[in-house]
Nucleic acid binder design. Structure first.
Lengths: 351, 351
DNA sequence: CGTAGATAGGAAAGGGCTTTCCTGCTACGT
DNA sequence: ACGTAGCAGGAAAGCCCTTTCCTATCTACG
């Protein structure tokens, strides 16, 4: 490993001079020395040791983001927005996949503290688990106490700035659309119950139901993993357990994709026999057949705002921003088939 | 920021002792001191400064991967495999998005060098650009000269270990399937020509064409950006420019998705009027309508192998592993419609 | 011509941690 | 009882850089 000292020796100057030239200090250096140093840097292919630099100066320049999994499009979008801001401000982003494991999440917060991260962004749902929330809170407190900045996406009970996707509102919008289309026999393909996102979206659904003087009984809600296969599984269970459903509300587009797959397999036409709606408006939503009615969350923007808030110097009371949800109507939501449709037997028998 | 010295003071021991306990040195420490130190660590919520640690010890423990964009499913899969190995071996992964910008790619290699990364994985296509390849090569040479490990996914002309997706073979397989189905009027939706991936896949197509005594004339090849919208654009252009096409070969599944969207918009039935095939077998391929015939690359495995090779100590001649491609037949490939089909006018008029 | 003021460059002190080396014990063998 | 081995713990050097402080040189002005 070539070091700054090597460069200094090669150029016949002091390490201080090399440092000033390489790291662009304000102090002026004669053109002759500058040239000699740069030549040495070139010859030795010198790259300063970032860790030594971070130790010596005290300015942080990396930010960390803890997501469920970057390969999940939801988080990929958030991360993209966040990266944009990071690049603009010359920050390095460390991406940590927690795979929704609370312990791993705690471990990553420590890791980011150890890395002297300037800011930590916690993206993704919180957990309805007071013990966990408490220990995470304590850890974050220790971090912010030493100047660290925290901002969270979509959880409510932690210190720090927050960007809140309008999950409740989105749930309300999508359910209202489904009820407005005339559906009364509705199944819900829900994400794991311990996620705050699930709780919020469900509560939006319930609010809409209430306005229509309907209820969403437990047997019409199936909790499953927050992905395509979970959606497929929950859809299959619901169809088997509750004959006569005319619409399925999935808690995100991946789950909706799984539901569509099951319906296609069973030969159930969508939306003719059963309507399906999703949540998040992932890019694929418009490429499915039928195209998916869903709720759009401005994910890229959410990621960008979360980091912007964290990097904004003006301390003070934690700020909360709500990112509005927007209904996106596409083909997969139609009117319910008549309850006594002669087709009913045709396709339920195929299951 | 609480430091190791703070902990030592609080526990009434020397910094050396704290270090030994906190970082799990082999040297034994009495239970009493150990307990006092751990209590102090707990009280002060001490986390060691990772940069100072890296400076002091000389073992690296982070690896870097340069991809086009993690939110692209292709790279998301590769990254997933890579992360698995990294986690197993206790390495931190730094993900860098180059957005296919050669300059940014060079900059990231420097950044990873500066971060003292133990290994650098370059994922994704190379560029058919000798000048760039040369300067990247020089940079990597400087890195490996100081003990850095490099492995590349899918490019041929760089030092270091390599995992090579069977792009040529995959191109051959998919084109053979298309020709075998009877298609003769085939359009190619190609990725940018300067990518080695494009070159390799195209050459596979050409080999298959040759076996069928066919050629792939330039006017039936459209180059576009390597994503859904690029695919849509290229598909639209091809359909307009070359009437009578019975099959479209897209260079990846995203482009195929775009092509399907255009065909759906124009009311062209797939595969009845036009067949469409993709490449990579992304997860969505089986959820599109029709489900997509494509070529599977074991991307997760490729990512895992690339990192495993890089971390494998046994130096020596660079190793090259080929990751086999596998044809996945699904609905989107069918026999060609008869050339004089009465339907022809019906749907070409709709464009 | 002498001195103040500016300026280029170097010496050296950290920054937080690890680790070698050393000291002062205890335990054991003869 | 003495010598040696073994062990727990501390002192201090070193990892690579930045930056303050200082010196030496030069310019300019009275």
């Amino acid at each position: 490993m070539t070091t700054l000292a090597d460069v200094a020796r090669q150029a016949g100057v002091s390490p201080a001079t090399v440092s000033r030239i390489v790291s662009g200090s304000t102090k002026s250096v004669s053109d002759e020395l500058r040239e000699r140093v740069l030549r040495a840097v070139e010859e030795l292919r010198y790259v300063p040791n970032a860790h030594a630099q971070l130790l010596a100066r005290s300015d942080r320049s990396t930010v960390g983001v803890v997501v469920h999994d970057v390969s999940d499009p939801y988080f990929a979008e958030i991360t993209r927005g966040l990266q944009r801001i990071a690049t603009e401000q010359g920050k390095l982003v460390i991406i940590c996949n927690s795979y929704r494991d609370p312990d791993r999440e705690l471990a990553y917060v420590d890791l980011l503290r150890a890395q002297q991260a300037e800011a930590i962004i916690l993206a993704g749902s919180g957990y309805l688990d007071p013990a966990f929330t408490k220990s995470l809170g304590a850890q974050l407190a220790a971090y912010t106490a030493t100047g660290g900045r925290v901002s969270v996406i979509g959880r409510h009970d932690l210190a720090g700035d927050a960007v809140l996707p309008a999950n409740e509102e989105g749930g309300y919008l999508i359910a209202s659309a489904v009820f407005a289309a005339g559906h009364r026999e509705v199944g819900v393909i829900a994400a794991p119950a311990e996620l705050t996102t699930t709780a919020d979206r469900m509560s939006g659904l319930r609010r809409a139901a209430k306005e229509y003087r309907l209820a969403i009984p437990d047997e019409r809600v199936r909790y499953a993993s927050f992905d395509r296969d979970g959606g497929a599984q929950a859809a299959a269970e619901l169809l088997d357990a509750v004959p006569g459903l005319t619409a399925l509300i999935a808690m995100n587009d991946s789950m909706a994709t799984g539901a569509l797959a099951v319906l296609r397999e069973r030969g159930v036409p969508v939306p003719l026999a059963v309507s399906v709606v999703g949540f998040d408006d992932m890019p694929i939503a418009q490429d499915l057949t039928p195209t998916l009615t869903t709720v759009r969350l401005p994910l890229v923007e959410i990621g960008a705002r979360a980091l912007a808030l964290a990097l904004d110097d003006s301390r003070g009371a934690p700020r909360h921003e709500v990112a509005a949800a927007e209904l996106v109507l596409r083909e997969s939501l139609g009117p319910p088939r008549p309850q006594d449709s002669p087709n009913l037997s045709t396709w339920t028998d195929m299951s």
